[in-house]
Nucleic acid binder design. Structure first.
Lengths: 259, 259
DNA sequence: GACCACAGTTCCACAACATGGAACAGGACG
DNA sequence: CGTCCTGTTCCATGTTGTGGAACTGTGGTC
């Protein structure tokens, strides 16, 4: 619950305590009462009171109608200015870079926007022959591994109508796509094998958001010959990274830890 | 040498100063250097240094690769957990309530999701005969005043194809919709007069986001007979509220302030 | 209406803590 | 190798934060 109170360096006691209070409020995303905060911080009532007042004055905290404390205007100002997936990208970047190093292929991160799937980040392959920049390019969801993740985990409804054919192996029947989704879910990762472009293989896994829903897909792509024998290994690798990322999204901030 | 230091109550100097630093960083949504912050706060180098270190430790600030300060993990944690328009709704609620009182009609707030327009908040009419709860209901954008706002201000592309007809007066030609948009922009507010449902009139205005783009539409709707003679008055009223809301979104928190 | 219980704020004397100047360390130039 | 510029650490000083206790205000109970 409450993040461990940091060990203050010298000369920052007040600020450290104040930061701990804010942190407590933000981490608990429900409003916290004065008593909760006093207890969580272990400070004297008077100190708590003065501090909360200062934080409120500074826009870091705010009181809801019942008088409990919630994150203040600075937080919603920030949230209003930044796309939610900006944070996702930020959190995901290190993982994507590691995946890039481990697989040497191009790494993708996608989210859904409306009924479409858009890429929000990419780390390029080490090879000359690799997938180019897909960011913001529209790829039909049923042809990419990224898109299939959303279908398979129900983050996107499978269309009722016939789907566009891009290659001989593209799945065009909704029913077939649904079946592919079932297999995908069992397997834990989605794969596209020349269904988007002949010779292009992709593998992708779901990323769970704070509430357990699938908010993004993490995957790699590259030439089929380089990938076809490593699908299992890649799928497992992606899964473990995605899981870590999910944990991050669930709320634990990446502090301390040996870099 | 104290430009805009907060008025501290007794015994909260350090926290007030710290909050001011965080506030400076969040308001300037570009990274700020140590020097910027030292200058903006008017504190001694040593104090600034200690304070920034404490704030960083507490997750309120963070350093980008170049060493400049940006909002810390607590902020992105918050952003990741809260929809961006949750803040919008929050900020808009008071205005919507006042509009409801002033017009006695149902008040709506919409945003675009993909190419669709969805309602995110509503304040109900005082009358028995009024618009019902539209939240999350799909209304074709070209038939509602809310939707027309997005077309008129270019937040949504006007479709190339013929549009669905819901009533005899529904605009179905893209060209006509574009023309309607021009008139709308000149006028300052969008109107739908029985184009969605016979006898239903709606008026809506744009809400500008932090970067000046149209992020939402604010409007009212009700039975035509009650509204048709008050369109001007309503449009003006909505505009002034929307403008205030826009100012809020632009970043000035609703605190004290001489101005 | 008088009573008490509880939540939060203000008061105050004390000294612990934050403070800023100066010295120090680490780059980035030339 | 010196100079400049940025940020951190040191340290004596006294300002500022501290917690206990007194106070205020609100709600509940008889």
């Amino acid at each position: 619950m409450a993040p461990s109170v940091e060990q203050s360096a010298t000369g920052t006691q007040a600020v450290d305590r104040a930061a701990a209070l804010v942190s407590t409020v933000v981490h608990a995303d429900a409003p916290l009462s004065f008593a909760d905060l006093q207890e969580a911080s272990g400070l004297a009532k008077s100190t708590t009171s003065r501090m909360l007042a200062a934080l409120e004055r500074g826009g870091l905290l705010e009181r809801d109608p019942e008088g409990s404390y919630v994150a203040g205007s600075l937080f919603w100002l920030y949230a209003a200015r930044h796309d939610p997936w900006e944070e996702l990208v930020r959190l995901a970047r290190p993982a994507m870079e590691r995946i890039g190093e481990e697989t040497s292929e191009t790494v993708h991160l996608s989210v859904t926007r409306g009924e479409k799937v858009v890429q929000v980040a990419q780390v390029d392959s080490r090879y000359l022959l690799g997938t180019r920049d897909w960011t913001e390019i529209d790829v039909p969801a049923h042809t990419s591994a990224l898109g299939k993740v959303f279908y398979a985990w129900g983050a996107l409804p499978v269309p009722a109508h016939e789907l566009e054919r891009l290659t001989p192996t593209t799945i065009t029947e909704p029913e077939a796509l649904r079946h592919d989704g079932i297999r995908t879910r069992k397997r834990g990762w989605a794969v596209t094998d020349g269904e988007l472009e002949v010779g292009l293989t992709g593998v992708a896994v779901p990323v769970q958001g704070a509430r357990g829903d699938v908010v993004a897909a993490l995957g790699i792509s590259g030439p089929t010959p380089r990938l076809e024998d490593r699908l299992d290994e890649i799928g497992t690798n992606l899964s473990s990274h995605a899981e870590q990322l999910s944990r991050l999204l669930r709320g634990r901030a990446p502090k301390e830890g040996v870099a």
